[in-house]
């Protein structure tokens, strides 16, 4: 049932999508084809799919750990932005530094940037018992505005004709493309797969993964085992922050090659759906990351071929999350509608 639920959820999302297209006056099947099949029928667009999947898989895998340990990090988007910015310090502020070590240094700085930003909600949660859902979410908006302000201000390209973007990164500061002949996909996708697999190994085989699961399943038993719940808050947030920061710098040093006022079309939020659709399993997140990357790609395609707003992508993502969570709930619980005026029978049966 655990694995059936996302499949039912996806199917229901497609049906709801078809209904939505027909209300928009589009032929439903043709629209679905244009949305979900056409974008992957050509090699170059498969490459685009991998570019979009990389950050989703990275962050989705990180969030799996967070959510399994009952730490509700909603702020991967902000952590991704901060990672992207921290990783861009070298190519933007010190473009004269060149060499093969620059890219690894950028990736490491990206990871650290994401971790540092994720440490804030972790610190607030452990010190002041602040709700991490709120703090991590609000920090996203701060990150977005900080990026916007920096790119329009201090980091604006001096030779950029006043466009709000930084200078373009040199080749040694870019992640190489895998098959330049076919399309733009870069080795960021490989990084994402490797990281997701590593997180899977950690969760399945290591003591740390065991701790994550115990703390999530039964906090009292975790205390009995001597596992420190506060340290776990930091571990989960820092790990998710690291993957988000890496996703940020992979996106910046990979597909875009410079910082613009936005790094991500909401990958950090979509990664939440990736984690749940992937059953909080990092390998599941790889599959779910590809599926949700398709919704972004289809949204762009639908905008061109169907003439609908690219917000349709958001609608699909929402539908998927809604139906998957609904399936999870309805598989476990039965809804009983009560109309009659009989007394409620089981009250206080304890």
């Amino acid at each position: 049932m655990t694995y059936l639920s996302p499949i039912i959820g996806l199917a229901l999302a497609l049906i709801a999508g078809a209904i939505m297209f027909s209300f928009l006056g589009k032929p439903p099947l043709g629209a679905l084809y244009a949305y979900f099949i056409e974008p992957v029928s050509e090699m170059w667009s498969v490459h685009e799919l991998l570019i979009k999947a990389a950050p989703l898989i990275l962050m989705g895998a990180g969030l799996c750990v967070c959510y399994q340990s009952n730490n509700w990090n909603i702020g991967a988007e902000g952590q991704m932005i901060m990672g992207g910015m921290a990783g861009s310090i070298l190519p933007v502020m010190f473009p004269q530094i060149a060499g093969p070590f620059v890219l690894p240094a950028m990736l490491i700085m990206g990871v650290l940037g994401g971790m540092a930003y994720a440490a804030i909600p972790a610190l607030l949660k452990t010190k002041f018992k602040t709700n991490e859902i709120l703090t991590s979410l609000m920090l996203v908006y701060i990150a977005q505005l900080f990026l916007d302000w920096t790119v329009r201000g201090a980091w604006r390209n001096p030779q950029g004709l006043n466009f709000p973007e930084t200078r373009r990164f040199d080749d040694f500061a870019r992640i190489a493309e895998m098959m330049p002949a076919d399309g733009r996909a870069n080795f960021g996708f490989v990084i994402a797969i490797v990281v997701a697999l590593a997180i899977w190994v950690m969760m399945a085989k290591s003591m740390k993964g065991f701790q994550v699961k115990v703390i999530g399943a039964s906090p009292k038993a975790a205390r009995f085992a001597g596992f420190d719940a506060k340290k776990m808050v930091f571990f989960a947030f820092l790990l998710a922050g690291a993957t988000a920061g890496l996703a940020g710098i992979v996106e910046v040093a990979g597909a875009s090659g410079q910082l613009r006022t936005t790094i991500s079309p909401g990958y950090g939020f979509t990664a939440i759906i990736v984690a749940f659709l992937g059953r909080l399993n990092p390998i599941g997140a790889i599959v779910a990351g590809l599926v949700l990357a398709l919704t972004f790609l289809g949204g762009e395609a639908a905008q061109i071929s169907l003439g609908v707003s690219d917000k349709v992508a958001r609608v699909f993502q929402g539908l998927i999350l809604f139906f998957v969570l609904a399936c999870d709930t309805l598989i476990l619980y039965r809804i009983r509608l009560v109309f009659s005026a009989k007394p409620a029978s089981q009250k206080g049966a304890a």
């Binding site: 065991f210 115990v214 399943a217 039964s218 009292k220 038993a221 009995f224």
Partner: peptide
């Protein structure tokens, strides 16, 4: 060694297998 009052959810994780519950306190 300590044995708590509540078995499920304190001395053992209810949805974990027995061997996993071995790890809980013997690690």
């Amino acid at each position: 060694m300590f044995i708590s009052e509540e078995r499920l959810g304190h001395a053992a994780v209810p949805e974990f297998s027995l061997s996993e519950n071995v790890i809980l306190t013997r690690h």
